[in-house]
């Protein structure tokens, strides 16, 4: 069922990660994700894995949900690691036809797998512990300097939060329309590619119609509440950094320092 997608879901809670300022989390996670791709040897990779494990544990979200989000990219991971396995350079340790296994290839495959898995785990961890509203708030605040070059920061943030808000609604709507068309004998899961694509028409058209209807409704509702864009708008909840956030930034600096030092002083494995 379409509703079972775990990726991007928010789980309310009161863990350390939940309590952090969303700006700290956003900056921290982006920095960590960038850092994943700056690891070139095993000690550096170990730091990232350790940090990821620590964050997952401190978020307090059942591990099952992380597995669910990993399941989605399982095939991508398998294909990329297989490709990397046989594309390494150097002395082959095993060869069959054009497939050449090298130590370099094995290292590459390990790195790419660990990197993608960490990437998905970290981004899931962020969305699991941060509500969409907090996330867009953080983005709006962080992009505020762009206002000076007349970039519509508030409008973009509003669009994002509206889009996020309607993801579950539209999924539910899709489900309902699918049921209704199935009840009229629509055959959704047999036949070749063209037949299946055509079978989507009875679902997509009503879905678009209802998306537009909802868009008009929400526009009217916003106007009724005198919404007039971002200028001069105050917030009910202002974001505030605390000691916790400062500690996080210190930890982040240490992690970045650790990885950079490993990269500089230790031999690269790939």
């Amino acid at each position: 069922m379409v509703r079972d997608v775990a990726f991007g879901q928010y789980f309310p809670g009161s863990s350390l990660l939940h309590k952090l300022d969303p700006r700290t989390k956003l900056i921290g996670f982006i920095a960590l994700i960038a850092l994943i791709f700056c690891t070139f040897n095993y000690p550096a990779l170990a730091i990232i894995v350790g940090v990821t494990a620590f964050l997952l544990l401190s978020g307090g979200i059942p591990f099952k949900f992380y597995l669910k989000s990993l399941k989605v990219i399982l095939i991508v991971v398998l294909i990329t690691s297989l490709l990397n396995l046989f594309y390494g350079s150097g002395e082959p340790i095993w060869q069959w036809w054009i497939l050449k296994l090298t130590w370099n290839g094995i290292h590459r495959a390990i790195f790419v797998t660990v990197r993608i898995v960490c990437l998905i785990l970290l981004s899931s961890c962020l969305t699991f512990t941060t509500s969409p509203t907090e996330l867009t708030d953080a983005i709006e605040r962080l992009m505020k300097p762009l206002n000076t070059i007349h970039f519509p920061v508030h409008e973009i943030a509003m669009m994002m939060s509206l889009a996020l808000r309607f993801v579950p609604t539209l999924l539910e709507e899709t489900d309902k329309i699918m049921q209704a068309q199935k009840a009229r004998g629509a055959d959704l899961d047999s036949g070749n590619f063209i037949r299946r694509a055509r079978a989507l028409v009875p679902i997509l058209i009503p879905l678009f119609v209802s998306a537009f209807r909802r868009a008009y409704d929400i526009a009217t509702a916003m106007e009724c509440r005198c919404y007039r864009g971002g200028t001069g708008r105050t917030r009910m909840k202002t974001l505030r950094m605390s000691g916790r956030d400062a500690a996080c930034f210190v930890a982040l600096a240490l992690i970045i320092g650790g990885v950079v030092l490993c990269d500089i002083f230790l031999k690269a494995a790939i």
Binding site: E173, K176, I177, Q179, A180, Q181, K182, A183, R184, G185, D187, V201, P202, I205, P206, V209, S210
Partner: peptide
Amino acid sequence: IRDIRFRVGMVFQYPEYQLF
């Protein structure tokens, strides 16, 4: 099971949203 759906017709709530 598809044959059953022709024999037992089902009209959902707000069925007008299924028109296409």
